[in-house]
Nucleic acid binder design. Structure first.
Lengths: 170, 170
DNA sequence: AAACTATGTCAGTATTATTGACTTTATAAA
DNA sequence: TTTATAAAGTCAATAATACTGACATAGTTT
């Protein structure tokens, strides 16, 4: 069992006693949990020629249907050239549709095709399943704490493009 | 503001109402928080010729001083060949020391040199700072929830090498 | 007409990972 | 003691994901 008691030694805080060791434990927890978190989709993606980058693209196109290429670039925080390869594959393989913008014809709105939605389902099913069972096992209060800490961790990181996501999340 | 209220619609649970959308929010939260979580060290590492792989190696060598090469391979879940390049650099650059095992001379025990500890400090300072301020802002109950959910997420992922870490964490 | 914007693409490079094959050294087992 | 196994290290080839820089095309603004 892992110790959740946070009443320890080294450096003091207004509310918490946070030793370097406890903080390092939190850091490792993030590392291993993220690894566990991506392992299911990674396995599925091996059956295709796709990787995590494709997963992310498919995820956000599904979450923000019709988003522009630039939106996706902002969210992912990668370069146009990096996204291009991934997006081109997904479009050629018929998983993503790129429609010319209605008002501004320079823009492309991205959508998942039926096949694209099928892949998205397959990937997110695995991840949601893990998330749901973790939430269940931990209980509602823990879930609130989990979300709160994660939000604090990414504070300052959500400046540009991702702030749109945060709004959408609400 | 982000909504923490978890009393919603779609699918029912013994304790929680968890809609697909709420689960997807949790998934995105993990993605963005992990990104925020690695951004500080990534910036520092750019000043060296190192990347995240070096950071991970340095982190775990510091946390489990004297660990064997095989231990590190198990923890990181990568191949010997992948680790080798990283480890060779760190050893050549004088950040890591590899000592022949005392009982079993085939084994190598890994340690950080003074310079290695200096780098480790620099990297973990940034990360601990972020972690500490997130913990502070969220409060003790939230921290417990955060840890509990993360542990549940990685359940089943900590089978082999990482179970040692979990023990160490305790 | 000129400037700017959104998208797409080509070429070259870097990091991190993979698989497979092989060596050296050391321990364990027959 | 020979044989087998184990730990570590290395070489070569390949893949996925990212980067920078340069440039093209189409459409919108000024």
């Amino acid at each position: 069992m892992v110790d959740h008691n946070l009443t320890a030694s080294n450096s003091m805080d207004a509310m918490l006693f946070l030793t370097d060791d406890q903080l390092l434990q939190g850091i490792e927890l993030m590392y291993f949990a993220y690894k566990g978190f991506t392992s299911d989709p990674d396995l599925i993606l091996q059956n295709y020629t796709y990787g995590r980058a494709h997963h992310r693209a498919v995820h956000f196109i599904n979450r923000r249907k019709g988003l522009k290429v630039n939106d996706l670039l902002d969210i992912l925080g990668i370069t146009k050239q990096s996204l291009n390869r991934v997006l081109r594959q997904l479009i050629n393989d018929g998983l993503v549709e790129s429609r010319v913008g209605r008002q501004d014809k320079r823009e492309r709105n991205l959508f998942l095709t039926d096949d694209g939605e099928k892949l998205e389902r397959q990937l997110s099913d695995a991840q949601r399943k893990r998330m749901r069972s973790a939430y269940r096992a931990a209980g509602p209060d823990a879930v609130m704490g989990f979300r709160l800490v994660l939000e604090k961790i990414m504070d300052g990181e959500m400046q540009r493009g991702s702030i749109k996501i945060k709004e959408k999340l609400t």
